[in-house]
Design a protein around this nucleic acid. Structure first.
Lengths: 120, 120
DNA sequence: CTGTATCCATGATGATACTG
DNA sequence: CAGTATCATCATGGATACAG
């Protein structure tokens, strides 16, 4: 677990594989996107439909991130009109059971302070 | 996975156990704290020493959150001077192997765009 | 349809100073 | 030592408009 220097001079532990995954998954809608793709490959517009309140901007960013990290594969479909389809990678398939284990832990979390932030 | 209405009118999928865990772990220093406590129970100042660049404010918030969710137990030590010690809960112990699995996935993540944010 | 660019509101976090 | 309050800053994400 190394230390990197961020733009705003904040040192945080990173370059840690575990932190990497968690950071990736904690971004808005990331898990929802993975969940939807695990059911069926989807196109951009279909994901927008499945996630009614997501913005196109965030969906685009998230898909790029997940693709860059190897969790999602973008399949251009040359059939006019030009379209594309997003599919879970093999890595993501190995990943789903672990998410399932994590969910079990989630069920056991207590919830004494639902929104414990900033000494609320 | 339900939908809640947040203060700023943003609807996000939440009340999802998986999202809960991931959100908890993705907060700054959360994993580092858990990691350190998994080695040995620690007091506040010892954790500050282990995590040299953490601020007391964030350490305090994180410990409260982890305690409220049942991952960390705070043990007041009545021996003067008044002190306290933080220990991982039994739930956390069940949790560690899953974190280990997640780490393996992390190792397999590609890293084509290290800082893919905001169309950088 | 599939994105991308700009703008802005909010939340998270570090720095610092302070309390028992 | 063990926190807590206040403040400033930066990244995230939504809304909207725009492009191929």
């Amino acid at each position: 677990m190394g230390l990197i220097l961020r733009k705003n001079k904040i040192e945080r532990p990173t370059n840690c594989p575990l932190t990497d995954v968690v950071d990736l998954l904690s971004k808005a809608w990331a898990l929802a996107i993975i969940w939807n793709l695990s059911i069926l490959p989807r196109r951009f517009g279909e994901l927008r439909h499945d996630l009614p309140t997501i913005s196109a901007r965030v969906l685009s960013i998230r898909l790029h991130e997940l693709e860059a990290r190897g969790l999602v594969v973008r399949q251009p479909m040359q059939s006019p009109p030009p379209s594309s389809q997003y599919v879970l990678s093999a890595l993501s398939q190995d990943f789903l059971p672990i998410l399932n284990d994590l969910t079990k832990i989630g069920h056991r979390l207590t919830n004494m302070t639902p929104e414990y932030n900033e000494f609320s």
